[in-house]
Amino acid sequence: MKKLLMLLTLTLALSQFGQAQRYITKNGHISFYSDGPLEKIEAHNNQVNSALDIKSGDFVFKVLMKSFSFEKALMQEHFNENYVESDQFPNASFVGKITNLNDINFTKPATYEAMIEGKLTIHGVTKPVMETGTFVVTSGAVEGKSVFMVKLADYNISIPGAVTGKIAEEIQITVDVNLEPLNN
């Protein structure tokens, strides 16, 4: 039921997008990194869905947790089974809006600072977030980038007692999406 509600929310948010002003990618990149006393953890995902409406400023991305790739198989296993429980919570998503849309000219190639506000859902927990990022506008494409921190406890991701204090409680998330106009 939760999954259905999440999908419905995302679909409703997406339905506000107009056709001509929508930029999308399905090959976006999200990575996360944490440097705890016990070990460094880094993972990458190259199949991120993302859409931007340049008129309304609506910005969304959605990612499958099982698509994250780790250097070590054991880390990947622990991530999916013990931390994010990807069988139960297969997706993470962000649904939000650019709040300083007037400062960004998506028709003029340049790099723009953006303020983004919205709701981030990880591990079935939705939290309001407010982050900064940049949009690099080139002719025919928009590259969106943001780096922000996520506290694991905020999303009910618990660190097993045996490694508490050895794994970072906050992880750095890097979003890099190269959006192209949707022509259909």
């Binding site: 995302l10 199949q47 698509s67």
Partner: peptide, 14 residues
């Protein structure tokens, strides 16, 4: 490939 699941629009294989 390895099936990562369905993201609401596509089935993703890695």
């Amino acid at each position: 490939g390895f099936c990562a699941g369905y993201n609401g629009t596509d089935i993703i294989l890695e």
